Each structure stands twice: as C-alpha cells, then as structure tokens.
Simulated scan of single mutants.
Amino acid sequence: MRSASLVRTGLTDEVVAQLTDYEASELPESWKAALALCDWLSGFEHSGKIPPEMYGRLGVHFNEQQILRLGALLASASGWHRMIEAFGIRPDHYQAGQSAPWAAAAG
C-alpha cells in the first residue's frame, strides 16, 4: 500500500506499509482497534452490529464518545472512498487544472 496523502499527513512509508496487515504489525494497539472498526464499518469482511468483543477492545483505548466519533468519521471516510472510486477520482494524482474524470464520460 502506498498513499501520498497519508505520507503528507506525517506518516512514514514504514507505518503506511504496516496498514496492510495491521493486526500483525507493530502499530499501537489503539490503532489496531480503530483499524478493526474501520474494516467492520467498511463491510469488507463483516456486517451487522458490532460484536461485544470489538466494542470491548475499543473500550480499552477509547471512551464511548470517542468510539462514536471514530465511527462517524470512519463512516464518512468510507462513503467518500466509495464515491471517489465510483467516479474514478484519484486525489493523490490530482493536478490543478486537470479536467474532472467524469467529463469525458459525459461528453
């Protein structure tokens, strides 16, 4: 995995590389719990109500308000990701003045 936008926020290439297999990584346990919630909410492997074990894992690192805020942020980001994929938008490669990716399809 490589993401210029993540690296621009201050994450190193080494940290970004660990996101692919975060459970086996050296990332902090709080990050692993948040990433597991991200996977759950994105529906890649799971769906339905968050199981008690996951909520308990999150509760070790975050209070209830933080868990809800994290969930809202992840839901928003997941929806944004799906939208940019659907329209072929590549923010890491965008250049000022570049036409929108859907302009060619519409025209």
Rank of each mutant, 00 (worst) to 15 (best):
L37H: 07
L6W: 07
G43P: 00
P101Y: 06
G79W: 11
R2I: 11
G97Y: 02
L27G: 00
G48R: 01
M54W: 06
T20L: 15
E64P: 02
E53W: 05
S25K: 05
Y94P: 02
D39G: 00
E14S: 15
E23F: 11
V16G: 04
A72T: 10
G88V: 02
R90C: 08
G97E: 05
A33T: 03
L70M: 07
Q98N: 06
E85P: 00
A100K: 09
W31V: 12
V60H: 13
E26D: 15
P101G: 04
L74N: 00
E64T: 02
D13N: 12
Q66G: 05
A100F: 10
Y94D: 13
P52M: 13
E45T: 12
M83K: 07
H46N: 15
H93M: 12
L74I: 08
P52C: 10
D13M: 10
L70Q: 03
V60T: 14
K49I: 12
A4C: 01
A96L: 08
L35Y: 00
R82K: 14
R57K: 15
I89N: 06
S99N: 11
E23W: 08
A77D: 07
R82N: 05
A33I: 01
Q18S: 13
Y94L: 12
Y94A: 13
L58I: 03
Q65P: 00
K32F: 11
Y22R: 02
L35P: 00
L58N: 01
S42E: 08
L37Y: 11
D92T: 04
G56L: 04
L35A: 05
A75R: 08
M1S: 13
D21H: 14
L37F: 10
G71P: 00
K49F: 09
S47I: 03
G107V: 03
W102G: 07
A106Y: 10
D39N: 05
H93P: 01
L58D: 00
A100Q: 14
T9W: 14
D21I: 11
G88H: 04
P28I: 10
A34N: 04
A34S: 05
L58A: 00
G88T: 02
Q95D: 08
G10Q: 03
D39W: 06
A77Y: 08
L73M: 15
R90I: 06
A103K: 14
W40R: 03
L19D: 05
G97Q: 04
G59K: 03
G56T: 09
T9E: 15
K32M: 09
I84D: 08
L74A: 02
L74R: 01
E23R: 13
Y22I: 05
C38D: 09
H61T: 07
E26W: 08
G48Q: 01
A72V: 12
M1I: 09
P52T: 11
A96H: 04
E64G: 01
M54H: 10
L19K: 04
S42D: 14
T20D: 15
H81S: 15
D21C: 13
I89F: 14
L73E: 09
D39H: 02
W102C: 11
W80S: 08
L58R: 01
M1T: 06
A17Y: 04
Q98M: 14
A17M: 10
T20R: 15
T12L: 06
A100R: 08
S3M: 05
V7R: 05
Q66N: 11
E45P: 02
E85V: 12
A33Y: 00
A4L: 03
L6S: 04
D21F: 15
F62I: 06
L35N: 01
A104M: 13
R2M: 10
L11Q: 03
K49S: 15
S99P: 10
L41Q: 02
